[in-house]
Write a protein that binds this DNA or RNA. Structure first.
Lengths: 144, 144
DNA sequence: AAAATAAAAGACAAATTAATCCTTTATTGT
DNA sequence: ACAATAAAGGATTAATTTGTCTTTTATTTT
């Protein structure tokens, strides 16, 4: 469904969101440990996400990654996926046709449209704030 | 969503189903041409599908690929996806966790379950026969 | 039997994705 | 000012996926 990059990215951002929710900054070491991901690779991903204003970062001692209160409420999962995997999941054809739409559909087009719409809506409506607050209530996991 | 292998495989099988529906066998050259896919690569994919009884093949002159009447009605898209991409789309975690289930869920588990269930049902309920007959009515495309 | 046809099989090659390593830059505390 | 800390950046390697090429096997027609 998503690339490894996107999977690690989502997990990392969710973890940062959780910590940011209680005003904590987290280092790349702490993140990689919390989500059980390759550290250097995760660092690269976070570079992309900071460039795209999904997360913020501060260098040096007491530095680390965090997400400001406003972003916590405005950033949805769809924004993260867009940065890391582009919009292929939403727009791309299930059978890999370059152009596939209502006018010129592949045999599965109308069946896929529905499923993708659901996915899109779910990603667009799920904010980091929702996850960060929800995760305090139930027991959720970011690693095995 | 699917690998290239699976995309080509689905398109190839749908094309073969269409031709088989009017009792025609098709060569790998005809298939690659009809779905605009790399021929040798598509040949490899069809090898896998014949081994797994999704399609049948006959060597030599007047040979080619086809799907018998019974398979046309019993084979669903889910069977093809299972052979080529495995069951990761159904069972795999959206965030890439190795084990993620109702008991030990990732933060998005319950949101993903629904979407994946829809996809699963769609793939399982769509048979080659349905596609082969439906494609005669409407204008559908297998290449650009 | 020989030639032609078409899929099967195996060995490579190219491209993309995933992952690591090393150096540089920014910031802080002593 | 200096040492320590932590992210940013660049170059490289590893693994996987995608794709090609050549040979072999099976079947049919002449």
């Amino acid at each position: 469904m998503f690339s490894k990059t996107c999977e690690y990215g989502l997990r990392a951002v969710i973890f940062i969101a959780l910590e940011s929710n209680v005003d904590k900054k987290v280092s790349i070491t702490a993140i990689a440990d919390a989500i059980e991901s390759p550290q250097a690779f995760t660092a690269k991903i976070l570079q992309q996400l900071t460039k795209n204003k999904i997360v913020q970062s501060i260098k040096g001692p007491n530095g680390g990654f965090f997400i400001d209160d406003k972003s916590l409420k405005t950033v949805a999962l769809s924004n993260i996926v867009a940065v890391l995997d582009g919009d292929a999941i939403y727009t791309g054809c299930g059978l890999g046709l370059h152009q596939c739409n209502d006018k010129k559909p592949c045999p599965l087009h109308f069946k896929f449209v529905e499923i993708r719409e659901n996915l899109k809506k779910m990603l667009e409506s799920t904010t980091l704030f929702e996850l960060a607050t929800d995760m305090n209530l139930k027991e959720y996991f970011l690693k095995n």
